[in-house]
Nucleic acid binder design. Sequence first.
DNA 1: TTGGTTATTGATAAAATTATCAACAAGGAA
DNA 2: TTCCTTGTTGATAATTTTATCAATAACCAA
Lengths: 149, 149
Amino acid sequence: MSCITTLTRTLRQRGYRMTPQRLAILQALHDVGHLTPAQVYARVRATGMTEATVYRTLDFLAENDVVRVADRGSGHLAYELAGEDHHHLICRACGAQQEIPAEVLRGMLDALEGHTGYRLNAGHLTFFGLCPICQESFTAEPVYEIVGG
Amino acid sequence: MSCITTLTRTLRQRGYRMTPQRLAILQALHDVGHLTPAQVYARVRATGMTEATVYRTLDFLAENDVVRVADRGSGHLAYELAGEDHHHLICRACGAQQEIPAEVLRGMLDALEGHTGYRLNAGHLTFFGLCPICQESFTAEPVYEIVGG
DNA sequence: TTGGTTATTGATAAAATTATCAACAAGGAA
DNA sequence: TTCCTTGTTGATAATTTTATCAATAACCAA
Ligand SMILES: [Mn+2]
Ligand SMILES: [Mn+2]
Ligand SMILES: [Zn+2]
Ligand SMILES: [Zn+2]
């Protein structure tokens, strides 16, 4: 049974409906990985859909755990289909990206749950830092305490 | 020597300038904890400053590690003075907030650095989940697989 | 102090995101 | 298939955030 069929049934059971707009957006997210609202709109505007609908739908799908949101520091949120849980690591110097399997942080999240009593969401954290290559370029120039010469 | 004096010197050493606008915004952030751009503007508009300046300045201060940014899921970024490193934990049901000292996650971040070779930024992650109280309200109604009756 | 360089601001326009609401259509029931 | 209920969309306006650019002022050097 198709993935869409399952999703459609899930939404209906919650009192929502499947629409061609939602299908088109899901298809766009399926074709590419992460997409900003503007990028999604670029891929579905041919259908006549409004930009407002894109924002609304992405928010709706995220609210229903069908897609994941991520603030990757670009100023625009990125959306992707909810699949295998993972996190993101971004170099704030060169922009290099790296995915982190959810298992890597599982232990930490479990510890945090124990520490706080909260039940944490599985996913999609974004970490920022310097990749190995960019670290060298920056070692000679620390962010703080520039003594100057 | 005043904290402002130190900060002013730091900025000048980097080729930037201290202005009354920047001082006012820093003061607002010092008085209250986390503030969105709109909240900052509400506290400094009496000075005649523009909204654009608020956005620009907050971005500038964040870029220079003077303030921290956080996406707390409200749709608006929150800024605060860079002080002791910490993280945030928010209940997505009732909105309850909880601060997490940086030490609690230090080990995890160290492990992640070892795993990836990246040098991570210390701070200000935001985790979402369900607080102990809200967990009970939701146990009878799992997010997925609502079988209905 | 005074003058000159240029980072910064205010004014303004543009772009992005959200809010309203009437018209439409998904989908359950008969 | 037809009808009804109501969730969803498009159109539109309002709000938020960003981009431009000339005028201003911080601050370094005389
Ligand atoms: Mn992702
Ligand atoms: Mn904080
Ligand atoms: Zn890098
Ligand atoms: Zn709660």
